[in-house]
């Protein structure tokens, strides 16, 4: 190829592409760079998403506050009917798990269709597709943030004796969950392009995941079951939401510190998942415009 003299007025190649693919680590670095470079686009996408979600309903964004409360009410009624003796202050007990879980399911639900939903654009414009799942994760954060309003109300009006300074650590735990969600969201959004089953399957997988996690019941209950049943013990120990739910519950309900060691471990693993997911996404990204 002819070398370009330095004096030439022509700008650096705006776009170059070849059949040679980059190496694994290179792809991951590219991916992170793209997301950072397009952070304004991600912001616009998040804003657009928020407007959209609030636009069609009578109560608009108020639903972000009402939703977790409704869900809590449903589970409180359900569990109180089934088991005669639930945990003390049960509404707060499950609310501390429902709030992060709602965030996670909403995020996954949005993310799974985030790439497929922009089919037309992907076929007509060159842009880093990674911004799509990332934007769906960040628009989930806002709904989580709104969910903190009813949490605050619950604590102040009904369980003021449970308020502790550890509540201030919620954002730290949420950050770990955010990193974990980013990796998962990126992965499912790419898989869904090739296997549309993902969108259907994920709803049931998430539901199963929820019931296998210590949300409606305590980790101790699950752990004691695990002594007799090794399968449950394995699931219990491998489930990242065991760590997350227990940590949220510690700071919100028990007034104790989160599981620091486990959280750090989960953060490291989540960062690993993010890298793996980015690599996977970038690897299949060139095929999106052909397959969609």
């Amino acid at each position: 190829m002819a070398s370009i003299p330095k004096a030439s007025k022509a700008a650096a190649p705006a776009y170059r592409s070849s059949s040679k693919r980059r190496s694994g680590p290179g792809l991951v670095v590219d991916g992170f760079r793209e997301v950072w470079g397009r952070r304004r686009l991600i912001r616009y996408l998040v804003q657009a998403d928020m407007k959209k979600k609030g636009a069609d309903t009578l109560l608009g964004n108020l639903w972000w506050v009402i939703d977790p409360l409704m869900l809590m009410a449903v589970y409180v009624i359900l569990v109180t009917v089934i088991t005669a003796k639930p945990q003390p202050d049960y509404p707060l007990f499950i609310f501390s798990a429902i709030l992060p879980w709602k965030w996670f399911t909403a995020t996954m639900g949005d993310a799974v269709g985030s790439v497929v939903g922009q089919e037309r654009l992907i076929k007509q414009l060159h842009f880093p597709k990674l911004v799509l799942p990332v934007a769906s994760v960040f628009s989930g954060v806002t709904s989580f943030a709104f969910g903190l309003i009813p949490l605050g109300a619950l604590l102040i009006f009904f369980y003021s004796d449970r308020i502790s300074p550890y509540l201030l650590l919620i954002p730290v735990i949420a950050f770990v969950q955010l990193v974990f969600s980013l990796g998962m969201a990126t992965m499912v959004s790419a898989i869904n392009v090739f296997y549309r089953d993902m969108g259907n399957a994920i709803r049931y997988l998430l539901r199963l995941w929820f019931y296998l996690s210590p949300a409606l019941y305590s980790a101790q209950q699950l752990e004691s079951l695990g002594v007799k049943n090794p399968t449950i013990a394995v699931i219990f120990n491998l489930n990242p939401f065991t760590i997350l739910f227990e940590s949220y519950r510690n700071v919100i309900y028990n007034g104790t510190p989160p599981l620091w060691g486990h959280l750090v471990g989960l953060l490291v693993i989540s960062a690993g998942i993010c890298c793996l997911a980015t690599w996977m996404f970038k690897r299949v990204e060139p095929a999106f415009a052909k397959v969609l």
């Binding site: 022509a10 700008a11 650096a12 190649p13 705006a14 776009y15 170059r16 592409s17 070849s18 059949s19 040679k20």
Partner: peptide
Amino acid sequence: GEVSVRGQI
């Protein structure tokens, strides 16, 4: 093969 485009597209 390979494609390269210089400048604003």
